[in-house]
């Protein structure tokens, strides 16, 4: 009887783990793209769920549903057109939660982070429907599936 309960418990835990992997998809990763060879979401069609556990990369220490390891990852210093670019990305709970520019072009303070209020306060307002007659319309359409979200090198380092 005990063995039976134990087995049932293990199956339940396994099922719950699969459920978490299926649903725990970072918004930074999987928006937009219907292409079948997309980003690190564990529910990617290339890996049947039943083999997910055995295919988990051995280097992944924190089993976040997304497969991303928590932590802060510093990207390389890159010589861009206008200056040096370097970012640091924070992963928490398997999601990209913050990106800081450690160095970026223009004459701004090198330590300024994107998320800090020191950035200019950008104007916000509710959208309103317009009646302007236009020549062309720009918008993400259902058929723009060819467009894929780019991965960050920090996500790649985090185990994406």
């Amino acid at each position: 009887m005990k063995k039976w309960f134990l087995s049932l418990g293990l199956i339940a835990i396994f099922g719950w783990y699969l459920f978490l992997r299926q649903s725990g998809i970072s918004s930074a990763q999987t928006v937009t793209q219907p292409q079948n060879n997309d980003l690190p979401a564990p529910s990617n069609t290339s890996l049947p769920p039943t083999t997910d556990i055995s295919n988990t990369p051995p280097i992944t220490k924190t089993p976040n549903p997304t497969g991303l390891r928590d932590g802060t990852y510093t990207g390389s210093r890159a010589d861009a057109l206008y200056g040096i670019v370097q970012v640091s990305a924070a992963i928490s709970g398997g999601k990209l939660t913050d990106v800081k520019f450690l160095s970026y072009p223009n004459d701004r303070d090198n330590s300024r982070a994107i998320s800090q209020y020191a950035m200019p306060i950008l104007k916000s307002e509710a959208i309103r429907v317009q009646n302007a007659s236009v020549d062309i319309v720009s918008g993400a359409t259902l058929t723009s599936e060819a467009f894929r979200e780019s991965l960050s090198s920090a996500l790649a380092k985090a185990g994406a």
Binding site: L39, N44, A78, V85, F147
Partner: peptide, 26 residues
């Protein structure tokens, strides 16, 4: 080049190792 400029936000290599450049081709 775009990968360097965005410090890796732009990556055409997928986690499974295949390439998907559609994010840049359009």
């Amino acid at each position: 080049e775009m990968k360097i400029r965005t410090d890796g936000y732009f990556e055409i290599r997928t986690p499974t190792g295949s390439y998907d450049p559609s994010g840049i081709v359009k």
